[in-house]
């Protein structure tokens, strides 16, 4: 590679974009999943502390922000593997382009680390509430950004939706709560996290519904995206792994646990994590498969 000139071909002129986009493999879905997970782990401990006025008792909940930073680093590792020009990552940080979600993302990623560290460290010289609210904001921005990243790729009908940001944030919250639920927790935190997880799953289901309704009632390209998700190649994975195994069944488990006061079992959190990962894979892969080139004229 010539070290001085890096030539990139943008948009649909890039030969990898049409007729089917196949440039993104497992790295991007994994990055989006871990990014969402990190967002959940930034927000949840801070939100619990803000609601109660004192730090959560469970060690693992307190460690949440650090876990978030670790998972985010893992995800960035996957993202880095995907980059064509690995030596030029630093160029993201020479500029800030307000109109580019990728630029926003690069800066959000940098912001998350110090905030996560401060949220965990709790130094006396910083106002605690301000730190916590910053953690919630940084986590929210991170979660929404993972969805906007796909939405910004206008060359794909399946990603052309503003709902993806909130959807990935909701999924990040549910998977974040699920990951914490798999760790040893104090009873009160477990109780709270199961409820938060259930609410996040309901929100996720509702946002998926909005996404589908948006596609179904949109123009022809949106219709095509709807078709790809609901009847084409990825439909079986979407309905079976995301809707049934990833949302409905864990929600039933959590409802049973809350209503009938049954003992906690790890099934729901594991399914939520599987569902969250599947959601990223299905949306990325079905989005790549949906092309403007074939929409019904």
């Amino acid at each position: 590679m010539d070290p001085t000139i890096v030539e990139t071909v943008h948009g649909r002129a890039n030969p990898l974009v049409d007729p089917t986009l196949s440039v993104w493999g497992w790295e991007i879905p994994v990055y989006l999943f871990l990014g969402g997970l990190a967002a959940g782990l930034m927000i949840l401990p801070a939100a619990l502390e803000l609601a109660r006025g004192r730090r959560p008792d469970s060690v693992w909940v307190r460690l949440g922000p650090l876990l978030a930073a670790a998972l985010l680093s893992l995800g960035m590792g996957a993202l880095f593997l995907d980059l064509e020009h690995k030596l030029y990552v630093w160029r993201f940080y020479l500029a800030f382009k307000p109109a580019s979600p990728m630029s926003w993302g690069a800066w959000i990623l940098v912001l998350v680390y110090p905030v996560a560290f401060l949220a965990w460290w709790d130094p006396a010289w910083l106002p605690r509430r301000a730190v916590l609210w910053t953690a919630v904001a940084a986590g929210g921005a991170l979660g929404i950004y993972t969805g906007i990243l796909l939405g910004a790729m206008a060359a794909r009908p399946g990603w052309n939706s503003a709902v993806l940001g909130p959807l990935f944030l909701a999924s990040g919250l549910s998977t974040g709560a699920a990951l914490l639920l798999l760790l040893p927790l104090d009873a009160r935190d477990r109780h709270a996290l199961v409820r938060i997880d259930a609410v996040a799953l309901v929100a996720e289901a509702a946002l998926l519904g909005v996404l589908l309704i948006g596609f179904a009632s949109g123009d022809r390209t949106a219709h095509l995206a709807f078709e790809h998700l609901t009847t084409r190649n990825w439909a079986s994975a979407f309905w079976s792994l995301v809707v049934v195994a990833g949302i409905s069944v864990p929600l039933a488990f959590e409802a049973l646990e809350i209503r009938r006061k049954l003992a906690f079992v790890a099934v729901a959190p594991v399914l939520v994590l599987v569902g969250g990962l599947s959601l990223r894979f299905v949306l990325v892969l079905s989005g790549q498969a949906s092309s403007f080139d074939e929409f019904p004229g």
């Binding site: 079976s240 049934v244 069944v249 488990f253 079992v265 099934v267 399914l271």
Partner: peptide
């Protein structure tokens, strides 16, 4: 797909 469902259904039956 059916056996994935059997697993989920069996888990739901046992837990409930």
């Amino acid at each position: 797909f059916e056996v994935l469902g059997v697993f989920l259904g069996g888990a739901l039956g046992a837990y409930s």
